[in-house]
Structure formats: C-alpha cells, structure tokens
Design a protein around this nucleic acid. Structure first.
Lengths: 214, 214
DNA sequence: GAATTAATAAAACGAACGTTTCATTAATTC
DNA sequence: GAATTAATGAAACGTTCGTTTTATTAATTC
C-alpha cells in the first residue's frame, strides 16, 4: 500500500534502465508493457512514472545514454598521434569492444529509432552522425596521405560500420572466439578493405621498385 | 454492409501483403494495428482474417515469401562454371540488387524475427541459414583453390553479408549513385576483403617472379 | 434463375494498454 | 518529534487492441 522499507530512488532508476534494455532488446519496444517492465524490476507500474514521464522518454533516455557513452569511450581511446592507420585500428577495436560488451543496448539503439517522435529521433541521429563522421575523417586523411586506397569515403565508412557492428548479431561470449580474436580478424579485414599500406601489397610494390632499380 | 461490387480476393490479398510490408517496415510489427492495415488497403479489419488467420501468420507469410524469393533469385543467377571468384561476384551482385529492390521487405525480415513464435522463427531461420551457407561454400572453395585468402570462413561470410545487406540502410534510389555503381564499389571491397587473386597483389606477385627470373 | 459460395461490412467481445489519481509509509529536515 | 518530502502500492480511467460473430451482397454454378 505504500513505500517499502529499504527502497531507494537511485537504485530503482538503475534497475529500471537495466531491465528495460534487456526486455526491449529481446521483445521490441512496442511489445514491452510498463507492467511487464515493472514486474521485472519488482515494483508497481506507477512507480516507473516517478523516473520517466512517458514510455517514449524512457526509450529516448536509454538511447541517449548509449550514444553518449560510445562517444566518450572513443574520446578516451583515440590515439594522440595522427597516423591514420593507427587511428583506424583504434576506431575499429574500440567500436567492436564497446558494442560486444553492450549487445542489448546496441540492439535497442539500432532497431528502435522508428519508435521515437521527431524531436527525440533528431537528437539521437545527431549523435550518431557525429560518431560516423569520425570514421569518414580517418579514411579521408588516410587516403590523402596515400596510406589508404579508397574508392568512395562515405560509402566505405558505411560498409565498415555495418560490418563491425554486425559482430553483435552472431557473437556470443563464452564461445569459440574471444573478443580479442574476433577483433584481430575484423581488423585484418578492415585493413584489406581499405588497402592499408602495411600489408603484402605494399611490400611487393617496394620489391618491384627495388628490383627494377638494380 | 456487405461485399462491394468489383471486389476480388486475389487482388485483395496482394494489396494486404504490399500494405503490410510498407507499414511494418516503417512502424514495426507491434506498432501496426489490423485496423490501420485494413484502412490502408481500403477494407474492414475483419476482411483481413479471410486471408490470414492471425496477425502473426501474416508476418510469417511475408517473411517466408521474401526468403523464398531470395533463394529463387540466387538459383537463377548462380553461374554455371565453378570459378569461385565468378560465383562470389554473382552472389554479391545478386544480393545487393535483390535487397535494394526490396528495402521494405528486407527490413521486415531482418527486424521482426523476435515477433515470431518458436516454430515460425525456426522455419525462417532455416531458410536464412541455407542461403548463408551458399556464401560460406563459395569462400571455402575459393580458399581451397588458393584463389581467396581468408582467415576464418564463417566469420568472413558473416562480415560480407552484414556489409552488403547494410546497403539498404543508407541507399536511396534516385540519388547520387545507381545500383550498378554501388554494386561495383561493393564488389571491389569484397574482392579486397577476401584477397581475391585478380587484383594488384596478384600482378605484383607475378611481376616479382618475372623480374627475379631474368 | 435458383442455389451456393466468396467477399465483405458492421458491430461487438474481453483483454490489455499507457497513464493518472490517491492513499500510505519511510526517510529527512528543522 | 512534528512537518515535509520521496517512494511506492493499489485501483481505476478511457482507449485501443486482436479477433469473432453475424448479416448482407456479388459472383458463380448448375
């Protein structure tokens, strides 16, 4: 009939966020009811409205948190030097690790955009676009420096992001491969895809030149 | 109050399928109501149940149709010769064309799997797995023949499928690039990714050999 | 041209939805 | 230790959901 002993707003909000991410990732935003979410948290449905004014605000808040964490993580992982290949390596490794560690939240952020109203959608897309621009810049810098061989910067950036985000579709921890092994393989594919000049091709080009110079 | 003049079951069913794909792709399966769908078709909600026993059966039917068309299209596009690189080229080109031409249906098939009951889900996943196996086989054949350079066949197959299916996320017809141009760029990326022996690397290897042989 | 079948409209069903209202209790403030 | 605030439970609100029932009409069959 009332507040229970030991209850605490801070802990309750965190529990709501966590349960919401799990449930929405599994069943989809529209399919999850406020009662179902409340039951998962161990609380009445009305209590949820102390923390989030509406169901959509809850969704928006989860997505915003996810995107801001992603930006912050990349900010912390970005190397100081400005070698484009090193930056590309850091970007891919950070992206894979971040998303693998947050599979459910990533699913929510990628699949539920259509459930947001216009304003909420715009604010999330702004964050996403800013993040994607980081990769485009790296690719363009690398191409300009002659270290990467790229047809179309924008298109290649999208292809890489789709490829490395797709890891969460099939990757399961505790299985055949570790995160580090997966990351190593995807890094190798990324470097080939972009024609990064650290590979066999580069050696052969130099070998050709040396042999001809004799 | 009753059947209207000129109504026809065959045409109505096709109209339901088409409207359902559009609406579900835009708003999501759970968010689309039977009344909304009926209104889009220009029919009463009850009429939908003459064609599909439940809402979920409608969804399942849309997905099954999509997956079967995909398999059939690939069957028709698969080259007769057994050069793995030629087969890989056909696979990627067919996949991109098929999905770009069916953006909405692809979104439905990729995003609404979680709305299916166990049996319906299993039947769709079976079709999907069979299709993905085609690519894995091509990659393995190519690697065995020494024409492709691949770390992990399964992992590379997933990466390629994620990459080329991702086209539908950003591609819009009537914009900067045509389907053929996009396909050409993605084909180039695929060939690099798999180290296909038709590229510069191969030429350089041969050049090295020739120069040394003098 | 009567009988049958296919296609639809209209209305209703119970269940469940997001949200609000209100009472109640634990914790905090002064 | 009284007053206030934060957190919650319980019940109810109006709406809408997927689906069913029933009646009616167009098309087809014989």
């Amino acid at each position: 009939m009332a507040r229970t002993a030991g209850s605490d707003g801070g802990r309750t909000e965190a529990a709501i966020r966590e349960a919401a991410v799990q449930l929405i990732a599994r069943h989809g935003y529209e399919a999850v009811t406020m009662r179902q979410l409340a039951a998962e948290v161990g609380v009445q449905a009305a209590a949820l409205y102390r923390y989030f004014p509406t169901k959509e605000d809850l969704l928006h808040s989860l997505m915003r948190e996810h995107m801001e964490e992603l930006a912050a993580t990349w900010e912390g992982a970005r190397p100081d030097n400005d070698d484009p290949v090193a930056r590309l390596t850091s970007f891919v490794a950070n992206h894979i690790r971040f998303h693998v560690e947050r599979r459910h939240a990533t699913h929510v952020s990628n699949m539920e955009l259509r459930s947001l109203s216009r304003d909420n959608l715009t604010s999330i897309l702004k964050l996403r676009t800013a993040y994607e621009k980081e990769l485009r810049t790296i690719l363009r810098d690398g191409a300009d420096a002659g270290l990467l061989d790229i047809d179309d910067t924008g298109l290649t950036a999208m292809a890489i992001i789709q490829m490395i985000t797709g890891v969460i579709v099939w990757f399961r921890p505790d299985e055949r491969l570790s995160v580090d092994e997966v990351t190593a393989t995807y890094l190798a594919m990324t470097m080939r895809l972009t024609g990064a000049k650290t590979n066999a091709e580069d050696r052969h080009v130099r070998q050709d030149a040396e042999l001809r110079a004799r």
